[in-house]
Design a binder for these strands. Sequence first.
DNA 1: ATTTTATGTCAGCCATGTTGACCAATTATC
DNA 2: GATAATTGGTCAACATGGCTGACATAAAAT
Lengths: 164, 164
Amino acid sequence: MADIKSSGKALFLREEELRRGIELMYFAYRDFTGEADSILVEQDMGRAHHRAIYFVGRHPGMRVSDLLAILNITKQSLSRVLSTLVKDGYIVQKTGAGDRRQRLLYLTERGIALEARLTEVQGRRFAAAYRNAGAKAVEGFQHVLQGLLDVETRSQIDRQDKSE
Amino acid sequence: MADIKSSGKALFLREEELRRGIELMYFAYRDFTGEADSILVEQDMGRAHHRAIYFVGRHPGMRVSDLLAILNITKQSLSRVLSTLVKDGYIVQKTGAGDRRQRLLYLTERGIALEARLTEVQGRRFAAAYRNAGAKAVEGFQHVLQGLLDVETRSQIDRQDKSE
DNA sequence: ATTTTATGTCAGCCATGTTGACCAATTATC
DNA sequence: GATAATTGGTCAACATGGCTGACATAAAAT
């Protein structure tokens, strides 16, 4: 009887705990992106532009197909934002030296400035949360987030980390 | 000199650490929602329907305005999904007993079943990540996520927790 | 010479967010 | 009891950013 009771309780707590995680994840992601979104609307851009700028800044000289693989969207979707970013002078494409089919992607000065501004805002939020929670908590945070990834995403990130 | 060097290094590590968090957050959120999204397309629904079903399931009898406050979207946006959910028999609206202007929201059997299915999928992912990372890590995870919230969101969640 | 790869483009569809205007029922207030 | 405020809904129009499908071109690989 005590067993049944406690296992029932444990299950209840478990479900509550999981729902707490699900909800926190939703709210935190929304608020995390909110500030950057405000900056982006000023520039007549959306989140999709931000992602492109962010990852090109992170991996200068990357190929379009690399960016497609990271973002996991269709080339038509990417093409739309990429062409406006090139047109507006945030990104430049240079023909690959070895393989001339490639259009290697680089941020311009303007792109670097915007990327820095966006990352600063998001970084500030993370820095505050990290400071408040402490180093041990940050470790746990990253550990759990990693565990939420699809296996494909995880190996993709690992590959990137290695090639740096 | 040693000071400058180490502070430079510390800043570098700090920025890398922050970028790691930003990226993990993006990938984890994407993968976390991906599975549920697949179920939703089967039912000709989107994420917006999921959110409505989720929170109505969490707070049966809530008012439309409560749901609007949680989701932080316009009533026109919510109205669209809400009316299809009512039409398709996932949610029922009951006129408030005290205040007859209110349309209190409840899940139907069908709604409960879909909510359970969606939450189970997302819960499984969380359970696996939690199990793998350990209790201490989960604490840290939640602590950091809380720190990422806007103050308004935090007080909103607190209010909900208290009123349960 | 042919096939494959990397990239781009056009056209159209869908979901979900937005603003603005306006309406009805009901409750609260002067 | 008249007036204002609240709760909820609706119509119209627009933007963003996903998607599919079809097709094109240049360069590399076979």
